[in-house]
């Protein structure tokens, strides 16, 4: 049996476009099932707004199962809301109680300009990936499975970092607006695997330097780890820093030749 959550007051950020001034608007939700997801609650509110002839609240969403990284939102001051290890689409209304006030804001960072209302443009992450988040390999016929032997702990560690869905919660949660957790997760994923070794140092150098163009710097608050829907550990940031140092040494050797 599902229960109803009653009398919610939502304060939602409304903003027409990237350069216009936005503000909070207050909405009431009289009743919602505790089995509804947070985004379904917003859908429900939007349908009501549309039927009242008002404009719907724009927010990002796609898979609604925590795998695509499209959903976002700062909910009561936390990226992806009051839960650990889940994206906003995986947040359920049972986390809230009758009469709660819920404040919903877009992710804020210079690199994530607001498109409209709660939707932000996270394409600067693509710039980081384009600069090195891949391997260069001939893509002929499919190679045999297990052609390259990878020790289990190594593949496990690489897969832990590969879990990053590129949602940007780490940037949103970081008091410095740094993208270290995202970049480090992507670097660690490939730099831990044999396939990533040939470009290991070029990768970390380009990705760190691209990240520098748009984002803040890490002061090791650790807030990103707390917000990450995939619970990626700040350990990957230490790996990023180490590989970056090695990359700088290595390219000095290259230049001296």
């Amino acid at each position: 049996m599902s229960n109803k959550i009653k009398n919610l007051t939502l304060k939602i950020w409304r903003q027409l476009g990237p350069t216009t001034k936005g503000s909070f608007e207050t909405y009431k939700v009289a009743e919602i099932s505790d089995e509804a997801s947070f985004l379904e609650m917003l859908d429900y509110l939007n349908e009501r707004l549309i039927s009242e002839g008002k404009t719907a609240i724009v927010f990002d969403h796609d898979c609604r199962e925590g795998i695509c990284g499209t959903c976002s939102l700062m909910i009561n001051g936390q990226a992806h809301g009051p839960q650990q290890g889940g994206a906003t689409c995986q947040l359920h209304m049972r986390k809230f109680s009758d009469g709660d006030n819920i404040v919903i804001e877009p992710f804020r960072a210079a690199a994530f300009p607001i498109v409209r209302d709660l939707m932000v443009d996270r394409s600067k992450f693509d710039r980081i990936i384009e600069s090195g988040g891949f391997i260069t390999a001939p893509t002929g016929g499919a190679p045999d499975g297990n052609l390259i032997a990878i020790p289990k702990p190594v593949s496990d560690a690489a897969m832990d970092s590969a879990q990053c869905i590129g949602c940007g919660a780490c940037v949103a949660a970081c008091p410095n607006g740094a993208a270290s957790l995202f970049t480090a997760a992507k670097v660690a994923h490939l730099n831990r695997l044999p396939q990533g070794q040939p470009e290991r140092f070029k990768r970390v150098e380009s990705m760190v330097e691209t990240m520098d163009l748009y984002f803040g710097s890490c002061t090791n608050h650790g807030e990103c780890q707390g917000a990450c829907p995939k619970e990626i550990s700040v350990d990957v940031i230490a790996l990023l820093n180490k590989d970056y140092r090695k990359a700088k040494f290595a390219s000095r050797k290259d230049l001296a030749r």
């Binding site: 909070f24 404040v103 804020r108 608050h221």
Partner: peptide
């Protein structure tokens, strides 16, 4: 780095943050 970080978020959050891991020490360096 402080200048860089300020520029990385020119518009602050308009509602209160609820920090999970950042400490008083880390936020007041």
């Amino acid at each position: 780095l402080t200048v860089l970080n300020r520029r990385a978020r020119p518009v602050k959050y308009q509602s209160a943050r609820d920090f999970q891991i950042a400490t008083f020490a880390s936020r007041t360096m």
